[in-house]
């Protein structure tokens, strides 16, 4: 009943979904690592990226790749702005205060969109070529699927190189591990936080564009569920650790697709519940996530 082709197809779908979760989770984990802030507004930046992409795709004739890169840049700067206005004044405040603030930011962004562009979902249609199906050995995927995976991997590789090798990247990893020690090294935390928001929001915008393209639709609340699931992915992988976010993202993508693909159809409605059950299970076994630092290490 599960032919090799079918299994291969599921794997492709899993990689696809996992790539998007990973892109989103990276921004969440970078920000959490530095500020212990669970940024609920992250998914809303994803949504804004998708809307901006839609605007550029439908109202201009620019090359498709620009309709993706321009929103990434714009949303990157918007991320910096959100941090500057909403989160920086709270530096040193309790985690709960920051959490509530991010919920407020999320709500403000979503409702501003409802008031300006309405809650009506809009079609996100790409030129026909992008959705063309290719079939290799009985397994089919669209150009968009290939683009999603290729772009995600390229972006994540670039980010990894940046964080591994540059002065700011190393400072970012140090600050995520021990903020106070990083400050004693002369690292300007505000600068590192700014870079983290820029990069994370940029990746969220890319994910938003890809997400909208995959499901051919945008609406003001579209960022909520991907944002929440990417948070689950970040926690599963070990929050605060970038490779953990990537690992968690793919793990969650695969788990979700396999759950739907290999269990009787009656179960597929429990897809989201399953994701959270998986989170609980993994946290029972490894409370700090798969690649997470133990609590003593973090002190």
């Amino acid at each position: 009943m599960f032919t090799p082709t079918y299994v291969a197809q599921q794997i492709i779908n899993g990689v696809n979904l996992g790539s998007m979760y990973a892109l989103i989770a990276i921004g969440l984990t970078m920000v959490y690592g530095l500020l212990r802030l669970i940024n609920f507004a992250h998914g809303d930046l994803l949504m804004l990226g998708a809307y901006l992409g839609l605007l550029l795709v439908s109202a201009t004739f620019m090359p498709l790749i620009l309709t993706l890169f321009i929103p990434m840049l714009v949303i990157g700067f918007l991320g910096i702005l959100v941090e500057r206005l909403a989160y920086r004044p709270l530096r040193g405040a309790p985690e709960v205060t920051m959490l509530i603030t991010s919920l407020a930011v999320s709500s403000i962004i979503e409702n501003s969109m409802v008031m300006t562009v309405t809650a009506q979902p809009r079609a996100f249609n790409l030129p026909a070529g992008v959705n063309r199906l290719h079939t290799v050995a009985g397994v089919s995927f669209s150009t968009l699927d290939a683009l999603t995976v290729g772009l995600s991997v390229a972006l994540m590789a670039a980010l990894t190189l940046y964080v591994r090798n540059t002065r700011t990247g190393i400072a970012m990893r140090a600050a995520a591990e021990n903020l106070r020690a990083a400050r004693l090294m002369g690292i300007d935390i505000n600068r590192v936080v700014m870079v983290a928001f820029f990069l994370g929001s940029m990746l969220a915008a890319a994910a938003g564009w890809l997400w909208a393209a995959k499901y051919s639709t945008v609406e003001p609340f579209m960022g909520f569920l991907p944002g929440l699931k990417a948070f689950v992915a970040a926690v599963i992988g070990g929050i605060g650790v970038i490779p953990g976010a990537v690992l968690g993202g793919y793990l969650l993508g695969f788990a979700e697709i396999f759950f739907v693909g290999f269990l009787p159809p009656a179960f597929s409605g429990y897809r989201d519940a399953f994701v959270f059950a998986l989170l609980l299970l993994i946290l029972l076994i490894r409370p700090n996530g798969i690649l997470g630092a133990s609590t003593e290490e973090r002190a």
Binding site: R173, E177, E297
Partner: peptide, 9 residues
């Protein structure tokens, strides 16, 4: 005090 080296670096 307590060294505070960056263990993951």
């Amino acid at each position: 005090e307590g060294r505070l080296v960056f263990g993951r670096l």
